[in-house]
Simulated scan of single mutants.
Amino acid sequence: MPTVILVRHGRSSANTAGVLAGRTPGVHLDDTGVQQAGAVGERLAGVRLAAAVTSPLERCRETAREITSRQPAALRATTDKQLSECDYGEWQGRPIKELAKEKLWRTVQAQPSAVTFPGGESMRAMQDRAVAAVRRHNSRVGAEHGDDAVWLAVSHGDVIKSILADALGSHLDLFQRIHVDPGSVSIIRYGETRPFVLGTNTHAGDLSWLTPPKKARSRRRRDDAEVGGGAGPGAQTGRS
């Protein structure tokens, strides 16, 4: 059961301007965003990434490059439009403070599963295609690199929140309770029986523990939940 590292792109020029960028072309990382992406790359430098997939939008591709350039072995990210930003339609490119006055804004906050952006995509469709993409890539990585493989997906705030909500078994209407900052790392391990959310919205800390030893020392099923909570990463305990 491979592990996916979900990274939201670093801070962009649209983030600092308070504009809903959506799929607007030409939105790049600002200086802080480049630093955030580089910091993620340093956190992941000790993790053997089997693959990297990114939204095709510039801010995500730039983030992915900062991360993959710090891998010890050459790794190039591929793009997948199914991990792209939500299509906000007529909301795209408008100031957030202006959108907050729209009647639809309240529905976005309270019942996102009922929202279809004018001229754009529904939030339910966004979640469906993003979750399907992650699970598809996860199966591919597992088939090519084994169940202990770790891979990277770079995407957008609402997209990652919707993926996390699915992994947590939460209804899309509760996904606004999840916070995903620019340059943050969230982690999901997909098992045969259920996903395990290993981290959300993290900003610091070495992640080399995600790379398993070359020879597994425990025969415990990794898709079982440990009764009592377990001993944590690096522990050599397990069932015999």
Rank of each mutant, 00 (worst) to 15 (best):
R94W: 05
A149E: 13
P118I: 04
H156D: 02
S69M: 11
V141F: 08
T79F: 02
K81L: 09
S113G: 11
L104K: 13
R70A: 04
D80H: 02
A133G: 09
S139I: 12
R70C: 12
A100F: 13
E90N: 01
R106H: 13
A100V: 05
C86N: 01
W105L: 04
A153G: 12
R70T: 03
H145T: 11
A149H: 07
A100T: 13
L104T: 11
G89C: 00
G120H: 04
A133Y: 10
V115K: 02
E85K: 03
A143I: 09
Q82W: 08
V131F: 15
A132N: 15
V150T: 07
M123N: 00
M123Q: 05
V134P: 10
N138G: 06
I67C: 07
T116F: 11
I96P: 09
E102D: 12
D148W: 06
D147S: 11
A77P: 03
S69V: 10
A73D: 15
V150S: 10
I96D: 01
Q82I: 04
A110W: 07
Q92H: 03
E102Q: 09
D147V: 08
M126E: 10
E121L: 01
A132L: 04
V115H: 00
S122H: 04
R136T: 14
T79V: 15
W91A: 01
R129M: 10
R140V: 08
W91G: 01
C86V: 08
V154W: 09
A114N: 01
D80L: 01
C86P: 00
R129D: 13
A153C: 09
G142Y: 05
V154T: 07
Y88A: 03
Q111N: 15
L75M: 12
R124I: 14
D147K: 12
R76H: 13
A110Q: 08
T68K: 05
I96L: 09
L99R: 11
Q111S: 11
I96S: 01
H137A: 01
A132F: 13
Q92C: 05
A149N: 06
A132Y: 13
Q92P: 04
E121W: 03
T116S: 12
T78Y: 04
Q127M: 05
V150D: 03
H145K: 10
T68M: 07
K97R: 15
P95F: 08
H137R: 14
L104F: 10
A132H: 09
L152I: 01
V131G: 15
H156S: 01
A149D: 05
E121Q: 00
V115A: 00
M126G: 02
W91E: 08
G142D: 12
A153M: 09
I96H: 14
L83T: 08
Y88G: 01
S155A: 14
V150G: 03
G89E: 06
T68S: 03
E90S: 08
C86T: 00
A77T: 02
G120I: 07
S84W: 12
Q127R: 07
A73T: 15
A74E: 13
A77H: 08
R76C: 06
R76F: 14
P118K: 03
A153T: 03
R136L: 07
R94C: 05
M126H: 11
V134K: 10
D128K: 04
Q111W: 14
R129C: 06
E85T: 07
Q82G: 02
D128E: 14
R124C: 07
W151Y: 05
I96G: 00
E102K: 07
A77Y: 09
I67R: 11
H137I: 06
Y88N: 00
A100Q: 12
V131P: 13
H137L: 10
A77D: 02
Q109H: 13
